[in-house]
Design a protein around this nucleic acid. Structure first.
Length: 301
DNA sequence: AACTGACACAACCGCGACTGG
DNA sequence: CCCAGTCGCGGTTGTGTCAGT
């Protein structure tokens, strides 16, 4: 392809830590001319840096909306959950944490959170706890007390294909599916417990499944809700409470008459991750979800 | 006080994606 | 459609700081 060698290898360019003077020059230039055209910025601004370095410095350090200070516990929890959902998609994760950069989050993950997440993952009590909570939630009558509802779209349908398992069909001609690795019994139990004759909760897929959303699809009851909106708005709220708090009822299941099943994508993750059957194929399931999130963007489904 | 290892953070590097001619 | 230039991302490395010995 005849790619130009990396600009950092050009001779005569400063490398390493930026000086205060360089910072000032870059800030003033971007204030005057705006971001972008990184390649041309060093020359135009009179900096002996490569464009890449300027971009990195600006995005990770000099931008005015950067949030300084330690990452809070809430932010850490959010990062951990988003990482479970999205993997090492640091820019996506950073997009959900205003003022935080992907580099900052990546560094924090590598130095602190990865270890913490590992500890949690191998803690057998955590799994049982979550599973217990999932089952007990599913048996609860719809209630407003202690329910975190947030702005999440009401998840009325979730489908997986092609590896979905059909575990039943209800009156409304709707097939009940599960993710490839989901605990069929657990899902079915929840469906029954929800008392939704029309299949408003559970994990459902209509027979006329949209083929364009081939591997993973959610149908939100709130028409305007998009996945990205949900992620943007709801996750931040979810970060305000502790998923490990066994007294917290996270999800509310019900019929369409009383507000339907309120289940955030986050909640689904919570459910599935609490299931021993899920863990074996957990990564692939999340892969579907991540791919789905990416493919839909702001698309309302 | 000197040394050492762990940790945190900034920066670099290479690759794939995107874009415009 | 092809290609060169550019951008953005994620992995990795370098370096300063601090606590423990």
């Amino acid at each position: 392809m005849g790619r130009k060698p990396c600009c950092s290898k050009e001779e005569g360019l400063n490398r390493g830590t930026w000086t205060a003077t360089e910072d000032k020059i870059l800030i003033e230039y971007i204030k005057a001319h705006g971001e972008g055209k990184w390649r041309s910025i060093p020359k135009a601004a009179g900096l002996k840096r490569c464009g890449k370095s300027c971009r990195l410095r600006w995005l990770n350090y000099l931008r005015p909306d950067i949030k300084r200070g330690n990452i809070t516990r809430d932010e850490e929890d959010l990062i951990i959950r988003l990482h479970k959902l999205l993997g090492n998609r640091w820019s996506l994760i950073a997009g959900r944490l205003p003022g935080r950069t992907d580099n900052e989050i990546k560094n924090h993950w590598n130095s602190v959170l990865s270890k913490r997440a590992q500890v949690k993952e191998f803690d057998p009590t955590t799994k049982d706890e979550k599973k217990q909570r999932f089952i007990s939630c599913s048996r609860k009558a719809p209630t407003s007390s202690g329910v975190i509802q947030g702005n999440a779209g009401r998840c009325t349908k979730v489908s997986f294909s092609p590896q979905q398992k059909v575990i039943g069909e209800d009156d409304s001609n709707t097939i009940v599916h599960t993710a490839p690795s989901m605990d069929v019994e657990l899902v079915h139990e929840t469906a029954v417990a929800s008392g939704s004759s029309d299949g408003s909760f559970t994990l459902l897929s209509s027979k006329e499944e949209n083929p364009s959303i081939s591997r993973f699809a959610m149908d939100f009851g709130i028409g305007e809700s998009s996945i990205s909106e949900t992620l943007a708005s709801d996750f931040s709220q979810l970060s305000d409470f502790d998923f490990c708090d066994t007294n917290t009822v996270i999800y509310e299941y019900g019929t369409k008459d009383n507000g339907q099943a309120l289940l955030s994508p986050e909640g689904m993750v919570g459910n599935w991750s609490g299931n021993d059957c899920v863990d074996a194929n957990w990564d692939s399931d999340l892969g579907y979800l991540a791919a789905f999130l990416e493919s839909t963007g702001d698309l309302t489904i």
